[in-house]
Every structure is written in C-alpha cells, then in structure tokens.
Amino acid sequence: QWISPIVTGDGPPPIHSFTLTPVTNNTAVMFGGDTDNGWSSKLHIISFSMTSVDVLEVPNPGGLVQWPKGGAAHSSVLITTDSVPHLLVVGGSPAYDVWLLDINKKVWKELVSIIS
C-alpha cells in the first residue's frame, strides 16, 4: 500500500544524475550531480524518519584538502571496514576518477585520476 505522509524539514537541492547511498536505516549520503549551474561536487548527509527530513551540506574546506571535482552520472557504493563506513565513488562525467570518503570524518581520498 502506497502512502503519502506529511513530511517536515529540508528537501534536497534541485539536482539530477547524483548518487544517494544508504548508510544506516535512517541516513544516506548524497553526492555530486548536475544542476542548472553545472556539475556539483556537493556532499550532503540526509537523515530522515517517516515524517521528517534533515539535509546537512558538508562544506568543502578548500585549500590543500582533497575533494572531488564536480561531476554527474557516477556510481557509488557503501563499503564498511572495521565498523567505519566509506563511500566509494567511481566514474562519472567529465572526469573518470575514483574517490573514497570516510563518512564519519568527512575526509576524501583520491584513489585513481583519469581525466578525459
């Protein structure tokens, strides 16, 4: 049976071609995508229940910190090692690279860089 609950809280930004990867029963990681302003490199942690949604944008600290460039149409998967969840992001457009995100620390590491 389909239901349409009344949900309060934030909605994700207008975007398409992103990945949304479940982390727990009530959280997910949203990364990248395509917007009216071009490719996004934004990272969002989304917490939700049956009646509420909370979208937290994780800011890119800039400087020498590694952070993926904007892209869309990539793939992602949750990998948990030693009880630490990681997001593996592969491919996409315009760069076909591979990144690993430590979800708890919000730290990216570039594994492979292949720019077309």
Rank of each mutant, 00 (worst) to 15 (best):
V29D: 09
F31S: 02
V7W: 05
N25F: 06
D82W: 07
D34L: 13
Q66M: 12
L111R: 02
A72E: 04
H86A: 03
G62Q: 08
P61A: 15
V65P: 01
V55I: 15
T80R: 13
P94D: 11
H16T: 11
G33H: 07
E110R: 15
S41H: 09
I15N: 06
E110D: 04
G91H: 05
V112K: 09
G92I: 03
I79H: 10
A28G: 13
T51H: 14
S17R: 06
G32F: 00
Q1H: 11
A95Q: 09
L64I: 07
G9A: 05
G63K: 05
I114M: 08
L101R: 06
P14S: 13
V107N: 09
S113D: 13
S52Y: 02
P68N: 09
V107K: 15
P94G: 01
D82I: 00
N25V: 00
H86I: 00
V107I: 13
V90E: 12
D102K: 06
I3L: 06
W108N: 06
G33V: 02
V89L: 14
N26I: 01
V98D: 04
V53Y: 04
N37R: 15
D102F: 00
F48Q: 14
L56T: 14
I114Q: 12
S41A: 05
P22I: 13
I45K: 13
T51N: 13
V65D: 12
S47G: 14
N60M: 08
G32P: 04
S76V: 05
L43P: 13
F18T: 06
K42G: 03
G91A: 07
L20I: 03
V89G: 01
S93K: 11
H16W: 10
Y96V: 15
G91T: 05
H86S: 08
G70L: 08
D10C: 06
D54C: 02
I3Y: 02
S47W: 01
I115Y: 04
W39N: 10
T51K: 11
F18W: 07
I46K: 00
V77C: 09
Q1Y: 09
S76T: 04
E57R: 05
L111F: 11
G9W: 00
S76I: 02
W67G: 13
P12L: 14
I103N: 06
Q1G: 11
K69S: 14
N37D: 14
A73W: 07
D97A: 03
S4T: 11
D34C: 07
S75L: 11
L78D: 09
S40D: 07
V55S: 04
D102I: 04
I6Q: 09
P94W: 09
N60V: 03
V55L: 08
V77M: 07
P94R: 02
H16M: 07
E110N: 15
P94S: 13
P13C: 04
W108C: 06
S17H: 10
W39R: 10
S116C: 08
K105V: 00
D34W: 13
S113V: 15
K106E: 14
S83H: 01
S40I: 09
D10M: 05
G32W: 01
T8R: 08
V90K: 04
I103P: 08
G9N: 06
